[in-house]
Amino acid sequence: MTNGHDPKSGRTRAALWGGAGCAAAVAALLVSLPWAAHDRLPDRLATHWSGGDTPDGSAPLWAASLFPAGVWLLIALAVSVRWRRSWPAVRPWRLIALAPLATLLVGAQASIVRANLDRTDWHEAREPALDVVLILVPAVIAGVVAWRWSTRPTPTPVTAAPELNLPEGERLVWFSRAANPWLQLTAALAGLVSVGALVALAVGLSGSAALWLVCAACGVTALAGAVFSSAQAKVSEAGLEVSFGPLGWPVRRWSPAAIESARAEHRLPSQVGGWGYRLSGLGTTVMLRAGDCLVVRPRGRRTDFAVSVDDAERGASLLNALLRRA
């Protein structure tokens, strides 16, 4: 019935058009850079150097101007497609991926034009060694700026955090754990492959470098899988302690004074980018299974730490009660 303008959808639309405009502007810049200087460029442009002074790849002017723009538009489109509606974690990564890429492509295009400027043949084009640095440094800076900008502090939820009634003179502790049997199985299989490869190398069945690589890769997978396939959380008067793996190591600890607030939240692996120890737009998440997560906001930090453990609601409420008392 109401014809009112929804501010949220308006903002989303503005962001959408802004993003599309920026992508189009970058594409236009990539196309126009060689065209702007086409009077002073050879027919074919040197476009590739393999470390040496002399170029080993060339392209006609139209290809040199259209190809980077095409690559840019393709990647920008692929990253911007909303694969699923419930992917808030991906959104900041778009900017973090696209900003350095745009800087890199524009820098490379400018460098190619500069190298070919006033040459009669593409073989004469020389790549100034400093250009690589001049391209990479702004790209890194763009990445850092995009990261700082897009991981702005997430607003704290407006709903009141649950708080447990903590009777005076009573000591309460809360334990919880969660494990992912699939990750454990993966770790075990990777460990077996790694040990097998190591034995094969040790007895001299094969000495190839590929086998060393398999051994190392599977070893790292097994170790990471074993460590981040289970987690134990403990809330006591000393604060929150989250330990990983069967040995309870590594451990992360927060004293009550170091925590701003705690809450329980329902999270899915698709929201945080998969299983295991995940960094995403929602902060750090130790995702072992979909469902209840204990989420804490460390004091003075911009993002949350979450761990998927059972009975997170009561853990959060006990933690909040301890925070108030501290």
Binding site: G169, E170, R171, L172, V173, W174, F175, S176, D311, R314, L318
Partner: peptide, 8 residues
């Protein structure tokens, strides 16, 4: 699990 211990 939640454990309660009375200090008194």
């Amino acid at each position: 699990m939640l454990l309660r211990l009375d200090k008194s």
